[in-house]
Design a protein around this nucleic acid. Sequence first.
DNA 1: AGGCTTTTGGTACTTTAGTATGAACTCCAG
DNA 2: CTGGAGTTCATACTAAAGTACCAAAAGCCT
Lengths: 153, 153
Amino acid sequence: MTAQIKQLKHTALYALLMALLIFALKWIQWKYLIEDHSTEIYTGLIALLFTALGVWIAMQLAKGKVKTVVVEKEVFTTEFVQDEQALAQLDLTNREYEVLELLVKGASNAEIADRLCLSISTIKTHVSNLLVKMHVKSRTQAIEKARRLKILP
Amino acid sequence: MTAQIKQLKHTALYALLMALLIFALKWIQWKYLIEDHSTEIYTGLIALLFTALGVWIAMQLAKGKVKTVVVEKEVFTTEFVQDEQALAQLDLTNREYEVLELLVKGASNAEIADRLCLSISTIKTHVSNLLVKMHVKSRTQAIEKARRLKILP
DNA sequence: AGGCTTTTGGTACTTTAGTATGAACTCCAG
DNA sequence: CTGGAGTTCATACTAAAGTACCAAAAGCCT
């Protein structure tokens, strides 16, 4: 709201200024431009004046401009750094994550069932949901994706 | 982006306003002055043109003078160095190594067969031999071992 | 040429993985 | 206290993976 009023004020100011300028030029023309060669001088003055006006306008508009540049810095590490953002985007439940951990280590459904003290049926359910959430079609693809997205080492 | 569009809008607004003003003056002149009116059009065009020029010049000058905020984003990566000794100890044949490469990428037997232009039977043979040589019992374990031994990334 | 490994492919079979569906139970926020 | 999400498990099925065994063709070494 206040910004719009401010804008209007500015616009009015510019309009007034421009009008004054044109009238001034008009006056100059009226007084000195009866001679033939004075047209070039007039044109030159107009050009100079309005170039200056353009510069001034642009400068006013350019005030307070900030440019943001994002630079990716590669950091080499020996240890694994988990991409928690990528992990959160998968929206896995606790159990699904536990299953994924063992899955990536190369465990079979039976082995996962043993280690988590669950039935193979349950593991199959978790793995199936896991594959859907990760948009893959097999456990090997899930492993590849988990490592590529830096979710697990 | 949106700031540039905003600026463009402003510039266009000013230009329009100026044009209107000039035409208003023109109308006044038309009515009350007996002057040659072609000069006025010429003047108006010159004014517009050089205002635009001024804006352009100012914009060129403003380049590099704009505040630049650099945001660094750290990307953690571990560079892969193949353990050729471990690879040699496995004593894989060329084909077996090719199959392993695709295996680690999460490809199924059918996909490997397609990419290497071989039958699934052949891939099964290679994979089976691979599992024996790597002393593992499934492809997922083979993937885990290949990465742990730094044979493949 | 004969013996060796590699590569390719097949059949037949077992095991594991993955899908679909349903159901029971817990837990927690509205 | 009720509805939704999460966890658990089962059955039945299809698809894929893996094993075992065999065999032909190609390439290589001496």
